[in-house]
């Protein structure tokens, strides 16, 4: 019977904490950039000009239909050579996950904007608003509220996806667990602690998201997926 011993792993708690912080750093960066870029992509995609909507659609589809790990490797190993720039693991991860979540957020924005009734556009334009004014003042505020659950779900998915950065040696929580496992020869405890740490953080986020979603549902507002 195996004797569990967490002490050697917990002795490296500082590594784990630093790893968790790095995980949150990548997630936060990708979230902020992803939402902004996602809105831009969604607006381009909804544009009537083919020259704008087509490339936006292409970016969205490519990043939604290729595996994130392939994207990460491409940005880390291939892009520096193509563009002749230096890429740190953090830059590669932030770039990949920002664009990737932008592609997903773009679809959320698009669904949200499309879910706002035509009458709202018409009423805004009937009082003389331009299209951008109608979008900013009337349509987006309503759309964003409906998108909140989908946003939160995506943010949680994003945090899970960031574990991939461990494969390019970025010192996130998973990478820290792997380090500790090799130093302490305690892989079972190291990976179990990592799994539990992820579970606690992500489960808490999911619960918070669920509560918000329930409150939105109770207020009778519709949501989009």
């Amino acid at each position: 019977m195996y004797r569990w011993d967490f002490a050697p792993v917990l002795a490296h708690a500082d590594l784990l904490a630093a790893g968790l912080l790095n995980t949150l750093r990548v997630t936060g960066t990708a979230l902020v950039v992803g939402v902004a870029l996602g809105l831009a992509l969604a607006l381009l995609r909804l544009s009537r000009r083919r020259l704008a909507s087509w490339p936006a659609g292409f970016v969205i589809e490519v990043f939604r239909t290729t595996p994130p790990l392939v994207q990460l490797f491409w940005f880390y190993f291939a892009l520096p050579l193509v563009a002749g720039i230096e890429m740190t693991p953090f830059m590669a991860a932030a770039t990949t996950f920002s664009i990737q979540s932008a592609a997903f957020f773009a679809e959320v924005f698009r669904a949200g904007i499309a879910s706002v009734e035509r009458g709202q556009w018409e009423a805004a334009r009937a009082i003389g608003m331009t299209r951008p004014q109608a979008l900013r003042r009337v349509v987006l505020p309503q759309a964003v509220k409906r998108m909140i659950p989908a946003f939160m779900e995506r943010a949680i998915e994003l945090m899970k996806t960031t574990t991939l950065v461990a494969t390019i040696s970025y010192a996130d929580l998973l990478y820290a667990a792997n380090e500790i496992s090799q130093r302490s020869f305690r892989p079972l405890e190291a990976f179990t602690v990592a799994a539990l740490a992820y579970f606690v953080v992500i489960f808490a986020a999911s619960q918070a998201a669920r509560r918000v979603e329930r409150r939105l549902a109770a207020s009778g507002d519709s949501t989009v997926r």
Binding site: Y2, T167, L174, A177, P187, L188, F191, A195, Y198, I202
Partner: peptide
Amino acid sequence: VEFFRNTPVLVQILWFYFALPIL
């Protein structure tokens, strides 16, 4: 469902590969 939805797949794979054999 809660456990597997709320942990990253990569962590699960590494756990099954490096940790499980010990048990």
